[in-house]
Lab assay of single mutants.
Amino acid sequence: MSIQHFRVALIPFFAAFCLPVFAHPETLVKVKDAEDQLGARVGYIELDLNSGKILESFRPEERFPMMSTFKVLLCGAVLSRVDAGQEQLGRRIHYSQNDLVEYSPVTEKHLTDGMTVRELCSAAITMSDNTAANLLLTTIGGPKELTAFLHNMGDHVTRLDRWEPELNEAIPNDERDTTMPAAMATTLRKLLTGELLTLASRQQLIDWMEADKVAGPLLRSALPAGWFIADKSGAGERGSRGIIAALGPDGKPSRIVVIYTTGSQATMDERNRQIAEIGASLIKHW
């Protein structure tokens, strides 16, 4: 067993022997301040990774656009098919120029040779490549099948209805392509620590998230040296922004954090800054 596999296998073990965790309302004060600064709703939840206990939450059962955070769930569904012998990570998928959609920095470079399922998941999570996500959605049967996968996990809230990039439209009061912070946090925890996926697939999923290259201005910008984070960000229309993450000190994750916002007129930089400040408060009061 590799060191990384050992780390993920012992996530519940280490967490069980940690000192009790206590909620700190100071972080919620910052979440509410972010709402004021952005002029928009902000949803927040913080779960203990081992027990699933909610440590703090704000608007945990209000719907927010998922945006690209759905790509972690998508690759979880792909990995479940791999575990069941219905898919192979090494299978190569070929596609054409007509398949390319807006923001496809990886797939646009491989029109000639195609990409493997493993490479597509890596591109979808680490670079948020939209064509990679659409190609992977095709392998599982489309958005409705991802929703069905989530329902089978016990998540009857999260739903995907459309493809990239239309799913980022974020129309107010439109339930399409949305989740709730509580539902997303619980589902992410199941994917990373539950028995739904094999140990190898859980490790692969967290490795992809740990290698995320496009979430630097968010929670990662607030992390002290030595902290662990595996995350996936999302951005959408109407001032929408979000991030889902597993993080913790001492090089291992111990909490799940989900943050979503929508309806702001603020710039992307300002949305990023507010999420980073929430992260800084979380870490300060850990």
Rank of each mutant, 00 (worst) to 15 (best):
A215L: 03
L137D: 01
P143V: 07
T158K: 00
V8A: 11
Q86N: 11
P20A: 05
L49P: 05
S233K: 01
A170M: 07
G216R: 08
S233W: 02
T267C: 10
K144V: 12
L188Q: 03
A23G: 14
K32P: 01
R273T: 12
S221P: 09
L74D: 00
L191H: 05
E61T: 13
L146F: 11
V106S: 08
H5P: 09
R271V: 10
V31C: 13
G248Q: 01
A266C: 14
P249W: 04
K109T: 13
A245Y: 01
K213G: 08
E102Q: 15
I259R: 00
M67Y: 02
G43V: 00
I3D: 08
L150M: 11
R41H: 15
S264L: 04
F64C: 02
Y260A: 02
D207L: 12
M184I: 14
T139S: 12
M115G: 02
V117K: 01
E270V: 12
L219D: 04
G248D: 02
Q204K: 10
D99S: 10
L136Q: 01
L74A: 06
K232E: 00
H285Q: 10
E87I: 11
G234K: 00
V72S: 06
A183H: 12
A245P: 00
E277I: 12
H24V: 15
K53G: 11
I275A: 02
I283R: 06
M184H: 02
R41G: 05
M1E: 01
V21I: 07
G263E: 06
A215N: 05
A9D: 05
P172H: 10
T193H: 14
L120E: 01
G142Y: 02
A266F: 08
D269L: 12
L188A: 07
S122K: 13
Y95Q: 02
D177N: 04
K53S: 13
L10G: 08
L49G: 05
K53C: 08
G251C: 09
T112W: 15
I243D: 02
L136M: 07
C121Y: 00
K284N: 12
E277N: 11
S104Q: 02
P224Q: 06
E35C: 05
L137V: 08
A222C: 15
A16Q: 12
S240M: 03
K190S: 14
L192M: 15
L111E: 07
L150S: 06
T186D: 14
S233Q: 01
P105F: 05
G279C: 09
L160W: 02
L73K: 01
R273L: 12
L89R: 03
V82P: 01
I259H: 00
V72R: 00
A185E: 00
E87V: 09
S264D: 04
A133F: 02
D250W: 10
N173G: 14
A280R: 13
C75A: 10
F58K: 07
A133V: 02
Q88G: 10
G251N: 15
F70I: 06
P25L: 10
S51R: 07
C75T: 10
D161W: 03
K232I: 00
G216I: 06
S96R: 12
M209Y: 00
H285S: 10
T126M: 09
G39K: 15
N168L: 05
V117T: 07
E26T: 14
L10A: 13
L282C: 11
S96V: 11
L223K: 07
L111T: 13
F22S: 12
S201C: 07
I275Q: 01
G216S: 09
E270T: 14
E166T: 11
S281W: 07
S201R: 06
D129I: 00
I243C: 08
C18Y: 06
R271F: 04
M66D: 00
M209A: 03
Q88T: 13
D161C: 06
T139Y: 07
D250R: 13
I206T: 13
V8G: 08
A84C: 11
K32I: 11
T187A: 09
G248H: 03
D36P: 05
P165M: 07
A34Y: 06
F70Q: 05
N152C: 11
R118E: 15
Q86G: 11
P12W: 12
S80I: 10
G226F: 06
A185Y: 00
D231Q: 05
Q86P: 05
M1S: 01
G114L: 04
V31R: 01
E166K: 12
D207F: 10
T107F: 02
I259S: 01
M66H: 05
G236R: 01
D36C: 14
I229H: 02
G39R: 14
K30W: 05
E56I: 05
N134L: 02
P217T: 11
K30P: 03
G242Y: 00
A123G: 06
L247I: 11
E277V: 11
E108I: 12
Q203P: 02
S240Q: 07
H5F: 06
L196K: 15
D48I: 04
E195L: 04
S254L: 10
A40F: 04
L10D: 03
L219F: 09
T139G: 10
E169D: 13
P224T: 06
M1C: 01
D207S: 15
I243G: 01
D207A: 15
L218Q: 03
I256A: 05
K144H: 09
T131I: 01
Y44F: 12
T187G: 08
P105Q: 06
R41V: 09
T147G: 10
P25M: 10
E56K: 12
I3F: 10
E145I: 10
Q265V: 12
L28V: 11
K252M: 13
A280V: 14
P224E: 06
A280Y: 10
F13V: 11
E195W: 06
L73N: 05
